[in-house]
């Protein structure tokens, strides 16, 4: 049996994936992601794209809520800002989609900072209510500022183009979605092994001690709002270009709660958890739906109940995780890895 892996330089010890087993797992995962679209059905690709976009949004929310400890109920609003900014910049100003998305992220970051200002004074539940204001205000602006947003009418935007190809199929969009999700995950993983990310976590764990150690707490809280909202805006903007239709109904309080569920079920303050939560909550209603369909002949009454079961399951899952595994799927994943601790690769941790 191996006694473990030891590093002889700080650079190696401080690497993102310092253990051989971690590298092997990552390589396998990357290979699977690259091969998947060539074998998946359109429906499978459609789900994968939803997962990719949700992963970006969940990591964004996790940066703020899981890592920095600032609860936000404004996720839907921030995604809406990203989606509408990206759509309108292209529709009204004719900007290329890449530029629109980039600007949309920056705009959402700024809006996030604005709605993060109450975090100077408010914590926990009170802050959650303040971010709920963001949700209400943004929804109101979108549905009432008809001249700019089209109000309750849907905004139809052209499918993005890349090197002369319209990215209007699930297969083509897959590459955009996966690149964005991987980029976001890598960025966040790096962030939380360096100075700013440590300051975020310190504020979550003990904000008074953080300030006494020289961290400007208010500054870093706003920075967390900005960084988080940047990626939440990215996820909204991607959704806009994926659907090519933007409507406010996609970005209600329900969306905010769905994303909170993702990071709770997946694991607060972990990147793997953001991904697992996005997978789980994207697939859950799908699985329940197909189960209902399978039962249609045997029990015709069940099919009609499916939407209700989907709603109930959603709530049930959150409660079950909060009670039985508050550290989420990421913790379960960790337990699985620990179980295989000695085989086929030994590693510490």
């Amino acid at each position: 049996m191996h006694s473990g892996v030891f590093h002889t330089s700080y650079e190696a010890d401080m690497g993102l994936r310092p253990m051989p087993a971690q590298r092997v797992r990552l390589a396998l995962f990357v290979a699977a992601v690259l091969i998947f679209p060539f074998f998946a059905s359109n429906y499978g690709l459609n789900l994968a794209n939803q997962v990719a976009i949700a992963t970006v949004g969940a990591i964004g929310l996790n940066i703020l809520t899981g890592y920095t400890g600032q609860i936000s109920l404004g996720q839907g609003a921030f995604m809406a800002v990203g989606a509408y900014s990206a759509g309108l910049l292209t529709l009204r100003l004719g900007l290329p989609w890449g530029v629109s998305i980039g600007l949309a992220c920056v705009i959402t970051a700024a809006v996030g900072v604005f709605f993060g200002l109450p975090s100077l004074r408010l914590k926990g539940l009170y802050l959650a209510i303040a971010t709920l204001a963001a949700q209400v205000i943004v929804e109101w602006i979108i549905t009432h500022w008809t001249a700019l947003t089209g109000g309750t009418e849907a905004l139809v935007i052209p499918a993005p183009e890349l090197m002369g190809e319209r990215l209007n199929t699930d297969f083509r969009f897959y590459w955009v979605g996966v690149t964005a999700a991987a980029g976001t995950a890598l960025f966040a993983a790096n962030l939380f092994r360096s100075r700013v990310g440590r300051a975020f976590v310190a504020i979550r764990d003990q904000d008074i001690a953080a300030s006494a150690m020289g961290v400007n707490v208010f500054h870093y809280k706003l920075l967390a709002f900005a960084t988080s909202s940047f990626f939440v805006g990215l996820s909204g903007a991607l959704l806009a270009y994926y659907r090519t239709i933007v409507t406010w109904e996609r970005f209600t309080l329900e969306t905010s709660i769905l994303y909170l569920a993702m990071i709770i079920v997946g694991g607060l303050g972990t990147i793997v958890g953001s991904f697992l939560g996005a997978v789980f909550l994207t697939l859950l209603p799908v699985l329940i739906g197909s189960a209902g369909q399978a039962l249609q002949d045997a029990a015709p009454g069940v099919a009609g109940l499916v939407p209700h079961i989907q709603q109930a399951a959603f709530g049930l899952v959150i409660i079950v995780f909060l009670i039985f595994e508050p550290r989420g799927l990421a913790k379960i994943w960790r337990n699985v890895k620990d179980y295989f601790h000695v085989w086929p690769f030994a590693y510490r941790r």
């Binding site: 790096n190 360096s194 440590r198 764990d205 003990q206």
Partner: peptide
């Protein structure tokens, strides 16, 4: 009043916060 969910190493690294420069972009791109 420690940062309970951080390692010993990270708690001490946080003590170096004020002596370091890196911002969000530096951290994310590493």
């Amino acid at each position: 009043e420690l940062f309970k969910h951080m390692t010993t190493l990270d708690n001490l690294m946080l003590g170096r916060h004020m002596h370091m420069r890196g911002g969000v972009l530096d951290g994310g791109l590493y």
